[in-house]
């Protein structure tokens, strides 16, 4: 189990997986403000929220300067603020969608920033917001340009499967731990979360699974290697089979859902001693 499960999991739900605990999706719709209290942090605006703490750039600078103390200070602040994310495979993603309300399809902010892609309607959206925060999306019109398309659970699952078919990784995003408010659909290098994880070893917690290849079933078609966003899968020339580097595998399961022969299974990380405690 990861430290998030230790802290926010519930043995009665989803075998203790923190993101299958329905309480982590619940939040009040309103709050009263103490006299004289204004808007703070992200509530006041995206820019204010972004400036209210250290950024990933500060973290990268600490790495560049080999400044361990600064690195620890920044990651400490980020953890305390409840920032974070975790990769989940498609089956768990389906279960997640039954635990939250409302569900809104939205434009991806990473693709807008990196590829200048403006997703303008529900047919183009590649990101998902969850929970009552989505009811207040008009507070941040620049973030939600194009609006929000609210969908029911079945529609959300259908959309999620389509994202999986296209080859996107499913990543749950924390908005003040343990509240889960976003469900990103990511690929490398567009997505900030994957990019930070692959290029700098920062950010997302790895999933609770590791991909394993059944060599009797694998015919070496290589589809899984094409779908892997982590550089964890390669085609082995000698054996003419796929091979997983379990230390690089994030357990997203894209290889499994893409395999035409069902030759890849997801093994719980805890059952694989070498990586049982490898979460980043």
């Amino acid at each position: 189990m990861c430290w998030m499960c230790d802290e926010f999991g519930d043995a009665e739900h989803g075998n203790g997986l923190w993101y299958l605990n329905p309480k982590n999706y619940a939040r009040n719709m309103y709050k009263l403000r103490a006299p004289g209290e204004g808007f703070k942090g992200a509530e006041a605006g995206l820019e204010t929220g972004a400036r209210s703490g250290p950024s990933q750039m500060d973290l990268l600078n600490a790495i560049e300067n080999n400044d361990r103390a600064e690195y620890d200070r920044i990651t400490g602040i980020m953890t305390a603020r409840g920032q974070g994310s975790q990769i989940v495979p498609l089956d768990d993603a389906d279960r997640v969608l039954e635990l939250c309300s409302p569900i809104g399809l939205i434009a991806c902010i990473c693709r807008k920033g990196i590829r200048a892609i403006d997703e303008r309607n529900e047919h183009e959206y590649t990101c998902m917001g969850m929970g009552v925060g989505m009811l207040k999306w008009e507070r941040w019109p620049e973030r939600y340009k194009g609006g929000v398309a609210f969908v029911n659970i079945d529609e959300a699952k259908e959309w999620n499967h389509e994202m999986d078919r296209r080859g996107f990784v499913h990543i749950l995003m924390l908005f003040g731990a343990p509240f889960i408010g976003g469900f990103c659909q990511c690929d490398y290098p567009d997505c900030g979360a994957i990019r930070n994880a692959v290029d700098f070893g920062l950010g997302s917690l790895k999933g609770h699974y590791v991909a394993m290849v059944d060599y009797d079933k694998c015919n070496g078609c290589g589809i899984c290697a094409q779908r892997c966003q982590w550089g964890a899968l390669k085609f082995e020339v000698t054996t003419e089979k796929a091979n997983v580097d379990i230390f690089k595998c994030y357990g997203c399961g894209l290889c499994q859902t893409g395999c035409p022969r069902g030759a890849i299974k997801l093994e719980p990380r805890v059952n694989v001693p070498a990586v049982a405690e490898v979460w980043t």
Partner: peptide
């Protein structure tokens, strides 16, 4: 939430679950 915010002393109602 309106009912309890209008009668209790907290600033937000502790919602434990809200889903389908």
């Amino acid at each position: 939430e309106i009912a309890y915010l209008g009668t209790q002393n907290f600033l937000k109602v502790p919602i434990i679950l809200n889903n389908a």
